[in-house]
Design a protein around this nucleic acid. Structure first.
Lengths: 343, 343
DNA sequence: ACAAGCATTCAAAGCGCTTTGGTGGAGCAA
DNA sequence: TTGCTCCACCAAAGCGCTTTGAATGCTTGT
């Protein structure tokens, strides 16, 4: 069923039917009702492409999610992020386009998306330091919101939604220091990523404040897999002087740490303390009842939702000043932390 | 840059330019080169919507991913599935549209997608028993491929890509039985899902073959979260006569089992045996070096890739008979299984 | 009674592309 | 020369919608 057929059926012009359905005032209430009813009956839904062509707006947004070519890994937080964003898209009747793009040619992917004209705006995932995509999108004039931030020139004004990574890791580190820990391992994400850089800075700053010399061999930076947590812990614990605490950049890494501990017969929270960052993933709820992990928690799903909201705003009124949302992570005390063992 | 501008620039008609770019024969090689070069230079990319309108083909496919309303959970295997499918889409220059839809109104979501005419085909995720979406899509005449299967009427012919769930769980169960286990817990996925029904059947069939009476209180069916694995194991082990082995429907559930064991001081593979189903998720590679879990393994990423291929095929030639791909899971012997403790 | 004003409705253009159905001219045979 | 076939190109229609600009029929005010 298309407009033409529907209007023929109703003995009305396409104009009137279109206006009736789109809520224009110059249509009598009587006809509007009649049209609405007929549309529902024959479940008429306007063809997106045609509408897009006519209006110049697509009612769609794009997400480009990077595929780490090194390990062929897709960050699992995307599911939850997207679930959050989708709530907004559903409400606003927007479609979501997804491309999974090897992180080597993300830039060209954005260029392509822009010139194909298939979306009204995009969400930028996984910003790196001085991310070129920001300038690119600005120069193209495509609305966008960054999930995270990028240390680009100060005067670049763009919308972002970020977690306060520095503060979170600063607090976590301080928390461990307060418990008496001095050798604290950091299992960071890839430090080409902005978020990881900030986390590192937070960690460092807490150590500095406490006058603890940081030990470079205790800091690692990798793709956040389970195996990374496991391997690192095994390596750490094989040292003459192993760390007494570990800070892990994701629950998945934390799971690896736990496996290693279990294998080594170490009890988390006693022999080794662990704080993770918890994105509050739906499949890994760090339960309220017995919080498995001491964690800095910030819901990535909420971040997705907020990103989508900002993007909708920006598409609706491009000239409004760009908004920034900085979410603070909660510090959840679970049972993987305890006083440093004296040795 | 659009067709009109480009053709004006070249002093050619839109027709010729369009044909040159789309590889039609009635264009001289000289002009084709000239056009191609100019297109690249001004990086002209045809507007997707306009092309779609004109051809009736969208060069896009849809994925509707269900959001379990009960727990607000999005299955994490989607990231990997989609990464696989995207390889094909990228190659074929297809776009991917995603909707996350509460599992309560999936059907209407499909209906909407179809009448909006924004995709050439869809992938159906998470089929349940006698899934109504299959009939729906057939009646609409929209090409689709099901990831999984549905026990619908025999004569329904549709394309699917599935793992041999029954066989996998039959083998896993038999493997445990061969090790002397008689009380085997099953932590299944939601048994409204087709895959879970088949897994249950496999489990049952192996027990039957060995003449073991199944114990309904050892079989659970839930959303496959970490916590589910943990809670179930804790409950199981609090029984007077706990099971000696557990079959878990996903690595995430297995992680919960491991956590419970570690807490209870049980050693996996000695005090309790565990076999998981492993979707070979990129973040949870069940490492080759020291395989953490004994598992039935089947790559969900590969499944995504295959689904996408079948869908492309079907879109290209709708009348070709529907194909079915049944993937066999590998049985990986890791170190979470061992002989049943005598007691 | 007539112009003005308003409430409704409509025909047609246009969004950027593909595709149908040509046209003009080169090349060749008779 | 005529008549024919090819080749290379083009003008215009059409995909399904929105939107501009105009038309229609009714009330009003005077």
């Amino acid at each position: 069923m298309n407009l033409k057929e529907l209007s023929a059926l109703l003995n009305l012009s396409q104009t009137t039917v279109s206006r009736a359905l789109n809520g224009y005032p110059e249509v009598s209430e009587a006809t509007r009702d009649r049209v609405g009813k007929a549309a529902r009956e024959h479940n008429y839904i306007p063809n997106t492409r045609a509408r897009g062509l006519a209006t110049g707006r697509t009612h769609a947004v794009g997400h480009v999610i990077p595929l780490s070519t090194k390990h062929e890994v897709v960050n699992p937080v995307f599911t939850d992020f997207i679930a959050g964003a989708s709530e907004i898209y559903a409400r606003e009747n927007y479609d979501m386009h997804l491309s999974v793009v090897p992180d080597t040619n993300e830039e060209s992917a954005y260029r392509k998306i822009a010139s194909k004209g298939s979306v009204d705006g995009v969400i930028v995932h996984g910003p790196v330091e001085n991310d070129p995509r920001i300038q690119l999108l600005q120069s193209i004039g495509m609305p966008f919101v960054v999930h995270g931030r990028s240390n680009a020139e100060v005067d670049q004004d763009y919308a972002w939604v970020d977690m306060n990574n520095k503060r979170a890791f600063e607090r976590a580190t301080k928390c461990l220091i307060d418990l008496g820990h001095k050798r604290i391992g950091l299992l960071n994400g890839l430090e080409s990523m902005d978020f990881a850089i900030r986390r590192r800075a937070g960690y460092q700053s807490a150590l500095d404040a406490a006058g603890i010399n940081s030990d470079a061999t205790l800091c690692r930076s990798e793709e956040m897999t389970e195996d990374y947590g496991y391997e690192s812990t095994m390596t750490f614990c094989a040292r003459d002087v192993p760390p007494t605490a570990i800070l892990a950049s994701s629950i998945i890494v934390g799971i690896g740490v736990r496996r290693a501990c279990s294998e080594l017969g170490l009890t988390l929270g006693k022999d080794l303390s662990l704080i993770i960052h918890d994105d509050d993933l739906s499949y890994f709820r760090n339960g309220a009842a017995a919080s498995q992990y001491t964690a800095t928690r910030s819901s990535v799903r909420q971040a997705g939702l907020t990103c989508a909201e900002l993007l909708m705003e920006q598409i609706a009124s491009p000239d409004v000043p760009k908004r920034h949302v900085l979410m603070e992570a909660e510090l959840i005390i679970g049972n993987t932390t305890g006083p440093a063992p004296r040795s």
